[in-house]
Structure formats: structure tokens, C-alpha cells
């Protein structure tokens, strides 16, 4: 079955090991949630998968629909169908959302083929409407001067435009008020289907009320310590991360 298959992944930042023998299989068509406290390595996982050069892979393998992901340039991973919605998307002055997305769409076309402008804008405006984004945003520099919520919405817009096979959403819910959260969740739910696998990274259970996951994984100290159905999120919410550190973590190490 097509999947994003992470096997025994070990990742260090400098000399410091962050991900320790991390394994997870995300079948296409499913939505999985990863929950875990701050500093446990969730963003490290996301960025290492996307190919950030600060993260050193010290072991393990990742397959995207059977293709080796590790070792590829970030742009090659994107073209294979991986998308990362960043926890902290950076500002890109002077590069408008429209131009940027057009260049990104262009990069996915075979040599010699051009993005058709009319269709492109039609699609872009359609997605913006769905996310209740003002169309004026297309001319604005990417993330420059955006509020936290606007940035996250812009990440989802990019995801909707680029139509990945696997999307990792790194704390897309943080910094969103409840209305924005609903809009973002609605955008993701629109995309849900047999052609997309989603890894939702979150700190809180709240987002999962709106994007209902097929599976929930609890992460602690660089690895998954418990997996279960969506009810695991409620259990975690009720028992707190203390429960993870005291009960789940020790048993997972054995």
C-alpha cells in the first residue's frame, strides 16, 4: 500500500541526538496525529523529512510510496509529493504569494510547459475563497507583516495549491483563534481523500475536534511511545503529559 514510511529514523542537531529510532507508517488516505510536549522533536521530524540541512540523519530510512526520500534535495522531496506546513513560516520580502506559487507550480511541470495564467488564478482565487482570504493577499509579499493566523492560513493555501501526496502540518493550530482554526480545518478536510496522507503535529487535542484523525501517536523524547485511535487524544488531554513521562515513556524504552 502507498505510504510515507519512516523506519528507525535517527536525527541529530550538531552532536545532540533528537530523534531516536523513530518509526511511523502513514498510509495514503489517512490522517495521523502526533502529539507531544515541547522540545520532544516534532519539528525536527518535520524538517528532517523536508530535507533541512541543519538536521543530520544518523540512521534509518524513509520511503515515500516506495521511493527513498533521505538524501534528496528539498525540492526533489517536494516534487515527490511531500509538503510541510511550517510551524514558523518565514517572511520573504518582495516575493508575492502569486508569483511564488506560480513559480512553485511551474517547477512541477515538465520542461517547456508553462503554467496557464488564467487557470492558475482561477484555482488560486477559488482556494483563497475557501480559506476566506482576501484576494488582495496575492499581491502581498509572502508572510511579510502577516499575523500568526494569516501565516498559517497561507501555509494551507500553499498546500491546497500544490496538491501534495503527503502533508505534514507542524502545529498549524498554534496562534489561531477558534474561527481561523475552523477555516483551516475545513480546508484540510476538503483535501482529505484517498490521494492524500496527512500528519498533523499538535500540542493540543483541540485541533483534532475539527480534523478527526484516523490514528494518534504520542511522542516523547524523540520517539513514539504510544499509538492508538482518536480516543487516545482525549485520554492524553485528560491525563496530561505527566502520564506520558511517568507511565508511557519508561515502558517504551524497555
Amino acid at each position: 500500500m502507498p505510504s510515507l514510511d519512516i523506519r528507525n529514523l535517527c536525527v541529530s542537531i550538531g552532536e545532540k541526538p533528537i530523534l531516536k529510532d523513530f518509526s511511523l507508517s502513514l498510509p495514503k488516505g489517512e490522517v495521523h496525529a502526533i502529539m507531544g510536549p515541547n522540545g520532544t522533536g516534532k519539528s525536527t521530524l518535520a524538517k528532517a523529512l523536508a530535507g533541512h540541512e541543519d538536521y543530520t540523519i544518523t540512521g534509518g530510512e524513509v520511503f515515500l510510496d516506495g521511493e527513498l526520500l533521505l538524501g534528496l534535495e528539498p525540492e526533489a522531496r517536494a516534487k515527490l509529493g511531500l509538503f510541510l506546513a511550517f510551524q514558523y513560516p518565514c517572511e520573504i520580502p518582495g516575493v508575492s504569494i502569486a508569483n511564488f506559487l506560480r513559480a512553485a507550480s511551474q517547477a512541477r511541470l515538465p520542461e517547456g510547459q508553462e503554467v496557464a495564467a488564467v487557470e492558475f488564478y482561477k484555482k488560486l482565487h477559488g482556494k483563497m475563497d475557501a480559506l476566506k482570504m482576501d484576494r488582495k493577499f496575492t499581491a502581498r509579499s509572502l508572510n511579510e507583516g502577516f499575523s500568526g493566523g494569516e501565516r498559517k492560513r497561507c501555509e494551507i493555501l500553499q498546500m491546497m495549491m500544490l496538491e501534495p501526496k503527503y502533508a505534514i502540518m507542524d502545529e498549524t493550530d498554534s496562534g489561531l483563534d477558534i474561527d481561523a482554526l475552523k477555516i483551516v480545518a475545513q480546508g484540510v478536510n476538503l483535501m482529505r481523500g484517498p490521494e492524500l496522507g496527512v500528519l498533523v503535529i499538535t500540542h493540543y487535542q483541540r485541533l483534532l475536534d475539527y480534523i478527526v484523525p484516523d490514528k494518534v501517536h504520542v511522542m516523547w523524547d524523540g520517539r513514539i511511545v504510544k499509538s492508538g485511535g482518536k480516543e487516545l487524544a482525549f485520554e492524553l488531554e485528560a491525563k496530561g503529559y505527566d502520564w506520558v513521562s511517568k507511565e508511557l515513556a519508561p515502558s517504551a524504552k524497555n
Binding site: A50, G51, A78, G94, F100, A104, A107, R108, S141, L162
Partner: peptide
């Protein structure tokens, strides 16, 4: 990295930033 993670080749990403 942000631009490349969206599939832009390194050169294109570089140019977008410079022209930005």
C-alpha cells in the same frame, strides 16, 4: 529552504529571493 521545500530548484529560489 522555505522556497525549496515548495519544490523550487535552488537557483530559482535564490533568484526569487534576490529579486525580492
Amino acid at each position: 529552504f522555505y522556497l525549496r521545500s515548495r519544490g523550487l530548484p535552488k537557483n530559482t529560489a535564490y533568484q526569487l529571493l534576490v529579486f525580492g
